[in-house]
Design a protein around this nucleic acid. Sequence first.
DNA 1: CTGAAAGCGCTTACAG
DNA 2: CTGAAAGCGCTTACAG
Lengths: 326, 326
Amino acid sequence: MTVGIRDVARAAGVSTATVSRALGKGPVSEALRAQVDAAVRATGYRPNLSARRLRSQTTQTVGLIVADIRNPFFTGVSRAVEDAAYGAGMRVILCNTDEDTARETLYLRLMEEERVSGVIFAPTRATAEALGPGDLPFPTVFIDRAGPPGLHDSVVLDNAGASAALVDHLVAQGYSRIGGLFGSTSSTARERRDGYAAAMARHGLDARVRAVLPNAEAAEAGCLSWLAEPERPDALVLSNGQILMGAFRAARGLSLRVPTDLALAGFDNEPWTDLVDPGLTVVAQPVAEIGAQAMRLLFERIADPDQPVRKVTLSGRPIFRGSTGA
Amino acid sequence: MTVGIRDVARAAGVSTATVSRALGKGPVSEALRAQVDAAVRATGYRPNLSARRLRSQTTQTVGLIVADIRNPFFTGVSRAVEDAAYGAGMRVILCNTDEDTARETLYLRLMEEERVSGVIFAPTRATAEALGPGDLPFPTVFIDRAGPPGLHDSVVLDNAGASAALVDHLVAQGYSRIGGLFGSTSSTARERRDGYAAAMARHGLDARVRAVLPNAEAAEAGCLSWLAEPERPDALVLSNGQILMGAFRAARGLSLRVPTDLALAGFDNEPWTDLVDPGLTVVAQPVAEIGAQAMRLLFERIADPDQPVRKVTLSGRPIFRGSTGA
DNA sequence: CTGAAAGCGCTTACAG
DNA sequence: CTGAAAGCGCTTACAG
């Protein structure tokens, strides 16, 4: 009932081999190609991709495993990855782990069973550290989170530098009791924390660090208790857009005036950050560039599996707004 | 070099048929199953899904085609769909059309080539109206946008009712020059427009309707020119979260005070809508419920392709905030 | 419960 | 340029 390549061949009066060549890039005479095209249209033939993949031993597929698809950072990266993939004639399988190591394992296994050409992966810190170079049976590029040095290709932000820029700015604005709230699951959050701590030390200030799960709800709860303490910070550095949102909610819940009572500075230039009052100071990440570079590294790794490991570090762009008195 | 089912069979001292049965639900003795499990672990075997799909003639895959993955409405729906799918042992292929009919055609074709079990689809109005019941070679459930009555299963919001509730509320708050800005590509936007117009007529007020592409940039530009006109509205109904954001930006750009100079009421209870000042009155959509119902309809349609067409209509929940003087 | 054999729908050497 | 034939890695009647 469903039409196969044999039906097309019969309708065109040629062999299945010729149909296959006409559909692909094989050498076929103009006359036969026209017959095949007509037969394809007449029969409504659609090639079976499972059969094609099995036979040709190439899936033309890349996997993209992100930590949180609701996070606009990953939405932006995934669009760039998809654009690059479709431009190269590949499709992408998108998976979302919710920062859960069990789901990471599950999806890594799925990628293997799908026989993907390669994977772009934003791993939790736990998984990044557990994974040796030989543990992944396909070329892999880490994004947003690099893992231990030298093991995997990666595209990341200069996290320490970006954190330091925020601290320098806050100090210049006159703040000194500057706290830092960072995600607990990613190496990126850790780098941002370390960059914050180094900058604080450079200014001769005490680092005040806390960790939360990187979502708005957890961040709000963490800030509500922290900001109720007598020794509360007069400024906060927040390690991503979700945590920044939670902090902003907490400040509002406690009726703290921003930036007078509390300054806020974070990551990710999400659309809402300049919609609130005051606008929020953030480091904008080059999401499209991150996705595009990741695909480039992946393709080059697929083409030459034995080349040395590469790490691309991109700079963030600080945007100073009212939340830090700018 | 890559290990196949024959290698596992050899290692376990059984036939490939037994390995296949042990991995699936076939009848196998406990002893042999244990041998197979050990051999799978020893060899690191991963089944080839392309081969499995080709041979078993079932892909265990559903397609999800959304109009804009950056829109939190679709992100929310897709999470619900994925949860339901994985719970049923199926995977999902997610595609994003950007409201572009050419990409809709492309992805519909991809779904066919992937031999998906079924598709959940948020079509543009143009595509929904062009598609007869026989034009889709797989079971399909429309979400967010129903298309012409009686042709396809669908899960939608009571759009007209929700629009009317916003108009009634604005009238009760004392507004009368109430304009409506609606997306130009979806049947949903059209229903919201019609519900708005009917409610305005019921109140004896003139409807003032404009259309834009459903993204924040286009909406902001449209509002900037509209609100600069002498006969400008004193309140706006906006047909989705992106358009609402554009309108809010325009009001700020023109230094209009909300709700004194201009009231705003829209759709989609996105996290930022209660973060801005004043908070924005919106109709919250039951995104998780929409996704779950769509999967339910799809599974039932797959199980019984000849059952009558069904349409599930869900109610929105109005949330009144400061942007309408509430 | 188990194995030998056929075959899912394609692509690709191999001959011509 | 074209066709006949083999085979990708599985699953599933068919016998036993």
